[in-house]
Structures are given as structure tokens and as C-alpha cells.
Design a protein around this nucleic acid. Sequence first.
RNA 1: GGAGCGGUGGCAGAGCGGACGAUUGCACCGGUCUUGAAAACCGGCGACCCGCAAGGGUUCGAGGGUUCGAAUCCCUCCCGCUCCGCCA
Length: 425
Amino acid sequence: MLDLRRIRTEPDVVRAGLARRGVEPDELDRVLELDERQRALAAERDDLRNRIKGLSKQVGTLHKEGRGDEAAQVQAESRALGEREQELAAETAQLGDEVRDLLLRIPNLPHPDAPDGASDADNPVVRVVGFDPDGYGPHQRIPHWELGPRYGILDNERAVKISGAMFTMQRKGGATLARALLQYGLDRNVDQYEEVRPPSLVTTETLTATGQLPKFADDAYSVARDDLWAIPTAEVPLTSIHRDEIIDTAELPLRFMAATACYRREAGSAGRDTRGMLRTHEFDKVEVFAYATPEQAPDLLAEMVARTEATIGSLGLAYRTLEICTGDMGQSHHRSFDVEVYAPGTDQWLEVSSISWFADYQARRGNIRYRPGGGGTAMVHTLNGSALAVPRVWAAIVETYHRPDGGIDVPSALLPYFRGSDRIA
RNA sequence: GGAGCGGUGGCAGAGCGGACGAUUGCACCGGUCUUGAAAACCGGCGACCCGCAAGGGUUCGAGGGUUCGAAUCCCUCCCGCUCCGCCA
């Protein structure tokens, strides 16, 4: 959510920022218009309340002095004002709701340094590490959806029987690999990040704070009977840890990490990338998250990117990092980077991490504040990223570590998690 | 799920129809004293909205209602605690 005051005071700056994202916000004018009416009505309403208060005090005094007749007169006057006040209050509240609804749908402003662009085709590649297109043997050019069933480590046929399309099931070394990656992702970050095991079902309010609602309701699984939603990422509950709180400034930055299952309906992507482990309704992920001051945020963003890159690199996988252009950014993003791993069998760069700085956009939705130096309160900045998304890394490992003589090796970094074995299959 | 009791400022905890935005303690900030600190004493101190300001309004779990007037009374819901039931 953008700062309404900012929209009011520098509408041109806001308009220009949104234009960079290719958004033509008619909503902006509507917000300004409604806001102005809302404030005018609120002033009128407050004035009435003030007068009613004054009259009520008179009534009390008159009664005490035994002047009942006069009191009755003032009461009648006050009652009349009260009726008008109720009307105004209802109108004002409704306008306020309308403004907020509109505000929730307006996306964040991009960072000045974020590259301009229209779509994901315009995302500049920032780094490519460990990639040699000619460095892979024919045994590594087999996609994991063939290797998986061949070695009995991926059984999607039965997953579909159990839960339907786009659900997966790993078995034996494949299941171990999935769990090992989760543990490894946590272990890589435990030096700086507090481990959290948050709830997987959350309230509407929690899902709104992160920006998934109201705009992306179709993408989330809902448990309608209990008015709960399945989290699409741990970012959702982590962002709400300090919702409606004022964080002690000395504690910032506050860093959290969580390994959770993530649930996504993937509405609108039916039939795309549905093979193997590329796109699934349920997957595991280690997420890192931080609350920070605006001053701390840029360094934290860089740190999160560097950590994710190092984790992927430590698994012996090739990766590249892209900066997301204005036309491809998520609605809450201020600046973000993607890390993609190279899967030789699939012969694709697979997005395994999206690391984003939200500025105060989410904090405003969630009312998450701190006390800056000069006094008063201000919204914190939030950042988050995937430290390790399991399925696609799983795919890249299975393909990359397939041996010429058959079998799949365990990357050396994961050996401690494999109960003494050095083979996935 | 049933019964009982509760939800008040960063925390603790008063108030239970009329000067209550709310006594008080702790915490926090400033000052006096001190070589410095502690103690003691003095002063300040919730958040949000509108306003250049003066000031006004909101806010005592949430939402309704009664009343001239609600932290205080009534209703619904949410959350917590204790006991019972159920349960991995």
C-alpha cells in the first residue's frame, strides 16, 4: 500500500513511478477525489461531535444544579445533532473504505535504480557463474522427469492419483534429497537468521498484509469453512509476526528464516512447465526474511542475494542472477533479483529464488512500525527471498549429478544429510 | 464443544454512566546532585487522523445497541485463563 499522504502531496512523482511499471492508474485520480471528500466530511463530523460533547457536559452540570427543565432542552438539541452526526459518520466511513480498497490495488513504486522494461525478456543478467554449455555429458542431458521414474526417486503418477495434477511425490533417495535440501538451506543461514516454524494456514488479514489479497485471491488455496488460507510462501506468516507492532529500533534488522510447504493454485498456468518438478501445487522452500530501517535495507538485499548465490554455488550447480525490470516486478516489489539455476537435462534456467525489497509497502498494509531517530513512528522496510526452493534445485541436482555409468551422486555439501550414503540412486 | 472468569497505554495494574485519554508503579527521555555512575529529587512521556498553527477528532479486544453523554450498561463475535469433554 502506498502512502496516501504521498499520493496527495506529490501525485506527479507517484504517477511517474507507476508509469515506469506500465501501469496507467486511473485509480490514482479516483483516490485523490474520494480522499478529498472523505476529509471534508470528516472535518464536518468532528465539528458536530465536538458540539455534542460540549452540550453533554452542560446537561451534566444543569442536572447537578437541579435545573432539569433547561437540561431537557439541551438534551433535545443534542439529540438532533446526533442524528446528523450518525449520517455523516456512516458516509465518512464508507468513503474511507473505498479509498483503502483502491489503495490496496495500486502497486508499489519501483526503486530509481530498477531497470526499466516491459516484460521478463527485459530483465538484465547481472551475473553468470559456473556455466559451461559444452561442459555437460550426454548422461546429464536427460531430464529429471525421465531419471526420476527410472531410479524410483520420483513417482508423480501416484502423486496424481493421490492428489491430482501438479502434485509430486519423491521416494527413497529422492525424498531424502528433498528433505536434505531443506535442512541445508536452514543450516546455511542459521548464523544470521532466527529459525521459525510458522502456521501454514493463515487468516485473510494475514494474507492481505503481504499483498496476495485482494488482487490474487485466485492463486491461493482457501479453507473456506474456517475462513483460512494455505500459505503460498513463508513470507506470508513471517511478515505478520510483527504486524500491528512497533518494533524496538535497537532490534533492527530482525532476520527470520523458515522451512515450510508452499501452496499455489497456479491458476492460469495450466499445461505450462508442468512436467516433473518444474511447477507444482505444493512444494517446500526455505525462506529468509527481514524487517529493517530504510537505511539498512539496501545492504540486506545485497546480502540475501549473495547468500542465495553462495548456497546454489556450494551445491556445484551453475546459476545466473537477473535483476527484475519494472515491467516484470510483483505488485509489492520495490526492487528485486531472481537467481536461476541451470538444469542441463531440462536445458533451462529455472528460477529458484526471488529476492525482494518491499520498502514500506507491506509494512503499511500490516501496520509494522519502528521509532526513527527524530521521534514519532515510521513504517519499517521489509525484505524477503527464497534461500532455497526445493523442487527446481532437486531437478538440477538429479540431472547434473547423473553418472555416466548410471546412478546419481550426492553433492558433497549434502553428504552429512544422507545417512552415510553417497548416492541419491 | 460445555461451564466459569477475563481482555485498559511498552509492561504491570486501577477505574465500572458525567472534567477519564484514562490514578499509580515499572520502563524510557531530559535536568539537579556526583570525578563518573547508582540512589534521591524535579520535569517529560501512548498511538492514529485532520489542520500552517491554535486546536479538533478517534482510540480502553472487534462490531452493533441503549443514552444528551459509554472504558463503564446490553447484544454478537474474536482471543486468553481455569475446570470438564474430545484428541495427534
